[in-house]
Design a protein around this nucleic acid. Structure first.
Length: 957
RNA sequence: GGGCGCUUGGCGCAGCGGUUAGCGCGACUCGUUUACACCGAGUAGGUCGCAGGUUCGAAUCCUGCAGCGCCCA
């Protein structure tokens, strides 16, 4: 590196290394490698998504972990891929097609044509995010990139479904589900987000049929569902209302209906909260989850009044029929008012469930769906390590650690309250449920072929299919179907001819697709080519070598959606936990603490930031602001800082280059100076801090330590003091360069996981790659050995011990005070002045040079017996005394005032400490070390006091 | 309603029983000196949310309260 530019120019450098890394296949994992394993699977981003700051944070952390593991000599697999994101993608495509006027509804195209359009969309927008991740420097094994709808992956999904079906864990049932009237699909509980809504509480009265003139008042936010009410419920323990239990009420709506058709029972149910509203509850079993349960307990009939699209159906009565549910709410209230049944309305705020994707209020609705009873629950529940980090043993190796630990409790709580997972979605984009059932003509077709259907279907079980017969009523068919049998046959992957046979018999595949997360929860092993076939899987080198994975990095917002389910799937399908550690990142927020979102427009485009500051800078900026387990307040300034840091690294290396000379390998112990030893000890401390912080997943601590060591300790102190001695030639100089090279080569390696590009560039440019074996840093810093703290042998060989460290610290503190003296005297930074120095201990000539340079002194006069006269500023310090004659340069009175203020502070401290030391309670109970420390402190303060008083005196007339 | 977390200089955070409470950014002053103005040097700025308690000693532990945020009902 002969001619290097003054400022770091990242863009060509980043492009160059991306090309070299990818062309060299350096991220490719080798399952045959004898090295110990490190593996991590990417949380798959939506295939058509674009990179967000959340992705930047998340993937930078994964890249740091992966790169560090490589340097530690492990065989690393970071497995990337994307998710088909069922609802999200389908919604986006549908919206785009509507906007362009191509369709009014997806039915206009039909399933196949619509899916074609989604695939087109995926081809066009898919892979963008992958390119962006590459640009960020992510060292994923791109040769193994997966997509949840790839053929192989889809087979995994199908296999998993059939296995669970076979075990009886998947069933079809008519249940209350969260229905999205916009997407027209069922949703899982996790896909519903509660939002606070301002609405109205309506109070209306119903008359008690058996007691004319007696009324009960009901409070509700949903008067439009009154036509669906099939009971009035009160708490049997409620003295106001208990006596009405067993009587009947007359439901006011639909108004045109005859009185006897609107008689509904008044029932007692302990679940009625009599503090809420009036204590009288209207029960709408068809449109409310809690009411459905009440209805079930009391065998109430169900009346559906809202259709799948959220409009009122004919059962809602003539006034409401055909209206949207929100419009109907107003009309129903008007109607009640007209009838004289509406007593009052009050503004009311409550929580309403919204569909996460379509952002529409969900409608609880009775619907026939596929449900899963979670497998592997017991193991998954016990799999989390709850103790604080201790030494790993055999038992804890079988457990999963959460970082930060507190998420374990959130996980526990969810696992303790598991409800069956509604896995079917009325969508087209996704894995179609691999279950076929007979059509209306199946029996006659079979008959005409002389085929015994039962025997034929039963026979398919030998080929891995799962055949089940269910009484229609159990699966929620209407009463008239009772006694009929429904047949389902689940077909494992790779049985095309069975499917064809069945379809010739009039069988049809279930039209629904699986919840996206039903494919995501298989991610850790499905991406590695799991088949469910024991022979194939035990011969699968990748699966054998890299499963279970080491770490998972994800956001806490998907702890239920994804993390918990992967743990269950891991135990169920692999018999093992899927990962050993889960690191939960914070949620990225803007400076005002708002969650970053597209709609708020407060999310910067990471690609713009890369263009403006470089990928390294973006990574560094993201990491600097991400403390463990806390939300991240993103500020572009941190990225700017990252750029500045890169520039600093660049220039420190440039400085080294300008000293000429080849890379200096050997440090000669005899030639080491105190500052050299000091910086080596600081490096050692930094390495230890960094490795500790990594163990605890405290990435921002790692960044802070790197920043401090490199910038303050190495650049500001070490390199600056070296400038005073580098003028010399020969062995002394080359030894300094050897130390500098030693430190820089360590710093570059420590920084590499954070700043992969610039460190790679400098690693080769500086020539540090030259004396390394080809596979250990000789070709790329990616495989250079990760720094270990300096061993005791090293330290004793080079004579590094704490006492030298302390001496340099003392001198440096003295220099800071000396500089302060200059500023006090208002001496411009560039003006050379003469200091008088009275050393407190023997001083080497080198130190005088350092003092001179770092104090910006024209000269330093060593005067062991100096007697200060008037108008001389001074500091007295353990390192020595420094005098600066200032007559005429400074406001003597102001300076004296400053010293007097300092004196007061010291006196107060002395008073405090001596009071403590005089207290027998204190001296009697306190540990010896603390006592000693107090005594030392008192001594020091007294010395300081004397010095300060002398200073005051020197300025007094 | 239940749970979790947070509250420390203008801003963002560290410290979680024992020095004069640290760090970074920002502010202010000075400065082109063997790399770097994407830089260097220095300075100012905090009764650690409030109220009690435990202790020789509390930002740190306990209790209560308040405010903010998130999650689950």
């Amino acid at each position: 590196m002969s001619e290097i530019p003054k400022a770091y120019e990242p863009h060509s450098v980043e492009e160059k290394w991306l090309r070299i890394w990818h062309e060299g296949g350096l991220f490719t994992a080798d399952p045959k490698s004898p090295k110990p394993t490190y593996s991590i699977v990417i949380p798959p981003p939506n295939v058509t998504g674009a990179l967000t700051m959340g992705h930047v944070l998340n993937n930078t952390i994964q890249d740091i972990l992966a790169r560090k593991a490589r340097m530690e000599g492990r065989e690393v697999l970071w497995l990337p891929g994307t998710d088909h994101a069922g609802i999200a993608t389908q919604t986006v495509v549908e919206r785009a097609l509507k906007k362009s006027g191509d369709i009014r509804h997806r039915d206009d195209l039909g399933r196949e044509k619509f899916l074609e359009r989604v695939r087109e969309w995926k081809e066009k927008h898919g892979g963008i995010i992958v390119q962006q991740l590459k640009k960020l420097g992510c060292s994923c094994d791109w040769s193994r990139e997966r997509f949840t709808m790839d053929a192989a992956y889809s087979q995994c999904v199908q296999q998993a479904f059939v296995e669970l079906y076979k075990k009886g864990l998947i069933y079809r049932g008519k249940r209350m589900v969260n229905w999205c009237p916009v997407s027209l699909t069922a949703l899982s509980d996790e896909e519903v987000v509660m939002k606070e809504q301002k609405g109205t509480m309506f109070y209306f009265k119903v008359s008690v049929a058996e007691q004319p003139g007696v009324f009960l008042t009901i409070a509700t936010t949903r008067p439009e569902t009154i036509p669906g009410d099939t009971a009035i419920a009160v708490n049997p323990a409620d003295p106001r209302h208990a006596r009405f239990i067993g009587r009947h009420a007359i439901r006011p709506l639909p108004s045109e209906l005859a009185r006897e058709k609107k008689l509904i029972p008044i029932i007692g149910d302990e679940h009625v909260d009599f503090k809420f509203g009036t204590g009288v509850l209207k029960v709408t079993p068809a449109h409310d989850k809690a009411d459905f349960e009440i209805g079930r307990r009391h065998a109430l009939p169900l009346i559906e009044v809202i259709d799948p699209a959220g409009r009122m159906n004919p059962a809602a009565g003539a006034d409401l029929k055909g209206l949207d549910r929100f419009k109907a709410r107003q009309i129903a209230a008007d109607k009640l008012r007209e009838l004289g049944a509406l007593e009052k309305e009050e503004p009311y705020t409550n929580n309403v469930g919204f569909s996460e994707r379509a952002d529409a209020p969900i409608e609880p609705r009775l619907s026939e769906q596929w449900f899963l009873k979670y497998p592997g629950v017991v193991k998954a529940r016990d799999s989390i390590q709850h103790d604080e980090v201790s030494a790993p043993d055999a038992a804890s190796a079988e457990k999963i650690r959460f970082h930060p630990q507190r998420w374990a409790r959130v996980y526990d709580h969810w696992m303790a309250n598991l409800e069956d997972w509604c896995i079917s979605r009325q969508l087209w984009w996704g894995h179609r449920i691999p279950v076929w059932s007979p059509g209306p003509d199946t029996l006659s077709i079979a008959g005409s072929k002389g085929l015994d259907l039962e025997k034929f279907l039963g026979g398919l079980e030998e080929r891995g299919c799962v055949y089940s017969r269910l009484p229609a009523r159990d699966s929620g068919q209407s009463e008239g179907m009772a006694g009929e049998i429904r047949r389902f046959i689940a077909i494992p992957p790779g049985q095309e001819e069975i499917v064809q046979q069945l379809e010739r018999l009039g069988f049809a595949q279930d039209p629904d697709v699986l919840d996206t997360w039903f494919s995501s929860w298989l991610w850790p092993f499905a991406t590695m080519g799991w088949t469910g076939n024991p022979d194939a899987d035990s011969g699968n080198e990748t699966l054998q070598k890299f499963y279970p994975t080491t770490d998972l990095v994800t956001g806490p917002d998907i702890i239920f959606f994804w993390v918990a389910r992967m743990i269950m799937a891991g135990y169920e399908f692999m018999g093992q936990l899927p990962f050993h550690n889960v690191y939960f990142t914070g949620i990225i927020r803007d400076k005002q603490g708002r969650k970053m979102s597209k709609s708020l427009g407060n999310s910067p485009d990471p690609l713009d930031l890369i263009a403006k500051y470089s990928a390294d800078a973006l990574r560094f900026g993201a990491m600097r602001s991400a403390p463990l387990g806390q939300d991240v307040l993103f500020d572009e300034q941190n990225v700017e800082l990252g750029r500045n840091f890169c520039n600093k690294v660049w220039n420190a290396c440039r400085f080294r280059q300008m000293q000429q000379g080849e890379v200096q390998g050997e440090i000669e112990p005899a030639l080491l100076m105190a500052d050299d030893k000091w910086v080596l000890l600081k490096l050692d401390r930094a390495i230890r801090e960094i490795n500790t912080a990594f163990c605890e997943y405290k990435f921002s601590d790692v960044t802070a330590t790197l920043y401090r060591f490199f910038w303050s300790e190495f650049c500001d102190w070490y390199l600056e003091t070296r400038k005073a001695t580098l003028a010399q030639t020969g062995a002394g100089k080359s030894n300094i360069l050897a130390v500098t090279d030693f430190v820089l080569s360590h710093v570059l390696r420590l920084l590499h996981p954070f700043l992969p590009f610039i460190t790679e560039e400098l690693w080769r440019g500086m020539g540090y790659a030259g004396d390394m074996p080809a596979d250990q840093g000789g070709k790329t810093i990616m495989f250079a050995p990760w720094p270990k703290s300096l061993g005791d042998d090293f330290k004793s060989h080079y004579g590094l011990d704490e006492s030298q460290e302390r001496l340099i610290e003392l001198r440096n503190a003295f220099i800071v005070q000396g500089r302060n003296l200059r500023r006090t005297a208002n001496i411009p930074a560039n003006k050379k002045v003469k200091f008088i120095f009275q050393p407190a201990q023997p001083i080497v000539p080198e130190d005088v040079e350092i003092l001179k340079l770092l104090l910006g002194a024209g000269a330093i006069e060593i005067a062991p017996n100096f007697q200060p006269g008037k108008h001389i500023l001074s500091i007295r310090h353990e390192f020595g005394a420094l005098y600066l004659p200032v007559e005429g340069l400074v406001d003597i009175a102001a300076e004296r005032g400053r010293l007097e203020k300092a004196r007061e502070k010291i006196q107060a401290e002395i008073a405090k400490v001596s009071q403590k030391l005089a207290d027998p309670h204190f001296t009697g109970k306190v540990p010896a070390a603390v006592l000693e420390e107090h005594e030392t402190r008192l001594r020091q303060r007294r010395n300081e006091l004397a010095a300060t008083e002398a200073g005051v005196k020197a300025l007094s007339d």
